[in-house]
Design a protein around this nucleic acid. Structure first.
Lengths: 229, 229
DNA sequence: TAGATTGTTAATCGATTAACAATC
DNA sequence: TAGATTGTTAATCGATTAACAATC
C-alpha cells in the first residue's frame, strides 16, 4: 500500500516494547475513545493528527496521548503526528475489533428488543447472530431477522456460530442463573445490563451497564452544582 | 427513631471532615455500588455489615471500604460494623437520591421507547416525567403513559416539572444540537446514549453510555484470554 | 473484661504531567 | 536547515493497601 510506503523500516520500529506486557486498564478504556474520535476525524476529512489535537478532543493532555500509544509500539512520525488510518488499524488490532465478533443476546424483553434493533453495535464490528429467551411465549418469534430460541440447546447453538460474547438483558432475579449457563456453554465475555454483581470465574470478563448507577452519578454532580454558588 | 438511639452523641461524631471537601471521583463511583449491594443485603435480611463483608461482595479491600466512608464522616460502630439502614440513608443523602428526581427523555426511537418501559430507573428514585421527539410522526403518541412532545416548548415544559436531568437517546448526528437546546433550557445533567463526545459548559455533567465501547472492552479481554494458555 | 472492628496514619503502588533529547 | 512533534525519562499527583491505636 502507498499509505505505508514511508514507514520507517520495521527493524527500527519498536513493535511491542515488552511483548506480553500488561496494558494499564486506564489505557485500554481510553483506546476505545481514541478510536471513536479518530474515526469521526477521518469522516471529517482528516488524514494526520497530532497528540495535542487528539488530547484536546478528549480533554486529556498531549503527554498522556503519547504515553498511551507508547504502550503498543512506535507509530508516530516526529514533526508530523500520527497517520489516522494507520493508528485506527493499530487500535482495532489491539482491541481485537479488526474482525467481526458474533454476539448472542440473552433476554428479549423490552430492553433486549431495543438492543436487537440498535445499529450502534454493527458500527464497530459486532453482530448479534443469536437471540435467546426463557419465556415460552417469546420463543419462536422473529425480531430483527432473528428467531428467538430457548436455552435448552445453548452450548450447541453458541458453538455453531463460534459465539464467545453475550449481551445479558434478563431480569436481575434471573441473571446469575443464566450467567452460570452461559459460562458453562463457553462464553468468556458478558455485557451485563442486569443491576446485580455477577459471580464468574477469573477467565470470564463482565462489563456492567447499570443505568440507575449512571443516573446516581449524575444526581451527585447536579446536587453539588446546585449547592455551589 | 429507635434505630438511632445508640448513636454516639453528635458532638463526638465527625459529620463532614472538611466541610465542602472535594470527594475523590473514584469514591463517588463506588458509592453507587455500595448502595446497590447494601440494598440487596438488606432484602436478604441483613441488618449490620462490616467492611470485610462489603469488600468481599465488591471485590475490594476492607481498608478501602472504610477509607471511602471516612470521606463523609463517622458512622461505623467499632466492634460491630455498619448499620445497613443507616449507611443506606447516608449514601443516598450524599448521592442526592434521598428524593425523587424528575427526568426528561429526549429521543423516542427504538432505544428511547425501551428506556421508557425500563423499570430500573424507578428503582433508585428517578422518574421519567417528560418525553420528547423531533419527528412529527412521533409527537402526540402516548408511550408508557407519557405523551411525546416536540421540542418547541422545551424550557417551559422542563420548568413546569422542575426537570434538571435528561436522558439523551437521539441519533449521533442530532446529539450535539439537541444538547445545546437542553443546556439552554436549564438541564445540568445528561445521560448520553449517543456515541459522540458532547461539548457542554463546565457546570453541566455528562454521563456516557456507549454500548459499542463496552463491547470493545470485552473484545480486548476475550482476545487476551484466547491468547493466554 | 476480651474480642471485634472502626478510623486514621504511613507506606506502597500506579497513573498523570512536565520536560527535553531524538527524529523527521 | 529550521520547525514541529514524537518517545521517553524523571517528577508529581492521587489512589490503594497495610498496620495499629482508639473504641465499643
Amino acid at each position: 500500500l502507498f499509505r505505508f510506503a514511508r514507514l520507517r523500516p520495521l527493524s527500527r520500529r519498536k513493535q511491542n516494547p515488552i511483548p506480553g506486557d500488561t496494558v494499564p486498564k486506564a489505557v485500554v478504556s481510553r483506546l476505545s475513545l481514541y478510536l471513536r474520535e479518530l474515526q469521526r476525524f477521518v469522516r471529517g476529512g482528516g488524514t494526520t493528527i497530532n497528540s495535542s489535537q487528539l488530547g484536546e478532543i478528549l480533554g486529556i493532555t498531549a503527554a498522556q496521548v503519547r504515553k498511551d500509544f507508547a504502550c503498543f509500539g512506535q507509530f508516530g512520525y516526529p514533526g508530523i503526528g500520527y497517520r489516522c488510518e494507520e493508528l485506527i488499524a493499530v487500535i482495532r488490532g489491539i482491541l481485537g475489533t479488526d474482525r467481526i465478533w458474533p454476539v448472542a443476546l440473552v433476554g428479549c424483553g423490552n430492553l433486549g428488543q431495543a438492543l436487537l434493533g440498535y445499529r450502534g453495535f454493527g458500527r464497530q464490528g459486532f453482530s448479534v447472530v443469536l437471540a435467546f429467551d426463557s419465556n415460552p411465549t417469546m420463543v419462536g418469534r422473529t425480531i430483527g431477522g432473528l428467531t428467538i430460541r430457548d436455552l435448552s440447546n445453548l452450548a450447541d447453538d453458541l458453538a455453531e456460530y463460534s459465539v464467545r460474547m453475550a449481551i445479558l438483558a434478563v431480569p436481575a432475579s434471573a441473571a446469575q442463573q443464566v450467567v452460570t449457563q452461559l459460562v458453562d456453554a463457553g462464553i468468556t465475555g458478558i455485557l451485563n445490563f442486569a443491576p446485580v454483581t455477577l459471580s464468574v470465574p477469573d477467565m470470564v470478563t463482565v462489563a456492567e451497564v447499570d443505568l440507575a448507577i449512571e443516573l446516581e452519578q449524575l444526581s451527585f454532580a447536579v446536587v453539588k452544582q446546585l449547592e455551589k454558588p
